[in-house]
């Protein structure tokens, strides 16, 4: 019987998620912070696809469609904030905007 064990697919998703989380924590450039968020959302979508393929149910792909919608919305708002950050502080350092009345 040939096939990929479901654990291997989920382990790949966990690896991508952990890499994205590490990038999110140690990068200060906001471009990379947003890219790490994309990686983490993509890993969550991968877990849905693997589970859907293992049970042979189409709900996994339907949930992936919703995850991709969320990622698109998050990217557009995040990039708009990034442009504002660059415009106001002339830097991409996310710590520059750590005070509330910046």
């Amino acid at each position: 019987m040939s096939g990929v064990p479901m654990e291997h697919g989920l382990a790949l998703a966990a690896m991508l998620f952990a890499l994205g989380l590490a990038g999110l924590m140690f990068r200060r450039n906001m471009v990379f912070v947003l890219m790490s968020l994309e990686i983490m959302l993509n890993a969550a979508g991968l877990a849905f696809i693997v589970a859907g393929a293992a049970w042979q149910q189409p709900e996994g792909q339907a949930m992936f469609l919703l995850v991709i919608t969320l990622a698109a919305a998050e990217a557009s708002v995040g990039l708009a904030l990034l442009i504002q950050l660059q415009h106001r502080f002339k830097t991409l350092d996310i710590d520059a905007a750590s005070r509330m009345r910046g």
């Binding site: 019987m1 040939s2 096939g3 990929v4 064990p5 479901m6 654990e7 697919g9 989920l10 382990a11 966990a14 690896m15 998620f17 952990a18 890499l19 989380l21 590490a22 924590m25 693997v50 859907g52 393929a53 293992a54 049970w55 042979q56 149910q57 189409p58 792909q61």
Partner: peptide
């Protein structure tokens, strides 16, 4: 992040669902 990854992989390894993805097209 490595500690989180180890926890996740350990949980997957102990879970042992034994399911196989055959690759049939949905």
């Amino acid at each position: 992040a490595a500690a989180l990854l180890l926890t996740l992989i350990g949980a997957l390894w102990r879970g042992d669902s034994g399911m196989l993805v055959q690759g049939d097209v949905l």
